[in-house]
Design a protein around this nucleic acid. Structure first.
Lengths: 70, 70
DNA sequence: GTGTGACTCAAAGTCCGTT
DNA sequence: AAACGGACTTTGAGTCACA
């Protein structure tokens, strides 16, 4: 479950760094708006392919989204 | 799908580096033997929590399993 | 020691909405 | 802009027998 927390935190941080709403990120990643919300709130457990699409949208390596906070 | 290929490759490489069979890795990660087989053959699309368990078994950061080949 | 098909069941993922 | 819910379809999780 630790990776889910890290993903949520990293995703939120990078998303905000771009000044993006959840919906903008969702559209950019090609996933549903409510799904992005669910990941950030830790109620969802995405597959690695969804992780990949979100990473591409955020212009960062997929693995980086799972890294511990610096 | 790229992450799936990378996971398969990295997992196989690290597994073999330990001299482990798919079955030994499966036991260490707490998943089924055939499931490990399925990931390596790209027929499975694991969630990030499964990725986490495999990473722990291989004693490597989860994100590292998604990295491109060096 | 690994590949594969088939299976159940829970969860991934989408789409509609309201607060 | 984001949390949250319901209903829905598709896919992953997890397991087995057999090759």
């Amino acid at each position: 479950m630790e990776v889910r927390r890290r993903l949520a935190a990293n995703m939120k941080r990078l998303r905000k760094a771009k000044g993006w709403s959840q919906e903008v990120l969702a559209d950019a990643a090609g996933v549903d708006r409510t799904y992005v919300s669910g990941i950030e709130r830790l109620v969802r457990n995405p597959t690695i392919t969804v992780l990949e699409r979100i990473a591409q949208a955020l212009d960062t390596p997929a693995g980086h989204l799972l890294d511990p906070p610096t």
